[in-house]
Amino acid sequence: MVNLSVRLGDVELKNPVIPASGTFGYGREYAELYDLDILGSFSWKGTTAAPRPGNPQPRIAETAAGMLNAVGLQNPGIDAVIAEEVPNIARIFHGPVIANVGGFSLQEYAENCAKLNDIDQVAILEVNISCPNVHAGGKNFGCDPHAAAEVTRAVKAVTKKPVFMKLTPNVTDIAEIARACADAGADGLCLINTLLGMRIDLKTKRPLIANRTGGLSGPAVFPVAVRMVWDVYEAVKLPIIGCGGVSSAEDVCEMMLAGASAVEIGAANLRDPCACKKIIEALPAVCERLGVERIADLTGAAH
């Protein structure tokens, strides 16, 4: 029997498979298809202070081996999530939940995270810093080590829950951002968010996505994500959730070899709603083939 359990700091997961934020809503749709309790955890949709309508249509474009999305963080707002989704999550999933939190100012990040203090099922705060800072001309927090550190400190000041900063790959040196978050007190890191991309419609000669640009995800980004997890593992001593293009049990193992302690799966759920279930079912055999008895031993083993 292969031991699939992993640790993210003090949080123990029964396996490393976590549906990624924005591809799993608050779990409702998938609970119709399979028992969510097989999952290590899941990361809920990026939640902001106010309800957000999101971007105009179209928001989605297909690409070779992946997709672009410009959903624009559509979510019902933190208060509605606490009132309506959190009680429902408790019914459909009994493991630890990762709360993905967005924000457009330091204050918003801190307030959102503080509101989650009393929700026991939320085991980890995943702070999405791929958001524009309204007080800095819309520059993404995650593109500037100083701003990334400020968000980390602002959140750490209001919560006792472990804080994982979710990094954007749209930077020259992701290790530098990772170090800034680590020095500011982050308990872990999650990477990568989507890569900025664009498609143009040949018929209309206009961008396919109304927002013009969208975030690329899916198998196309997998090698980029593996490389970035590798770089960050070398740079900091924090647990890493690896994310980006994972679509098979083999990909999970590869991401762990690069340095991830657990793995998030995003776009693969949209293509196949049972992707996580199939990956979890395939993991023991893949581990056996690789000769590992504890999947946790894979973390960083390629270094």
Partner: peptide, 27 residues
């Protein structure tokens, strides 16, 4: 019709404004 990411309500890729708030075309 809308461009869809999932088709089953999970991604918000297809959502459009209505007089009853935003609705997912797929769900």
């Amino acid at each position: 019709e809308a461009r869809m990411g999932c088709g089953f309500g999970a991604c918000m890729g297809c959502s459009v404004p209505t007089t009853n708030g935003y609705k997912r075309v797929c769900k």
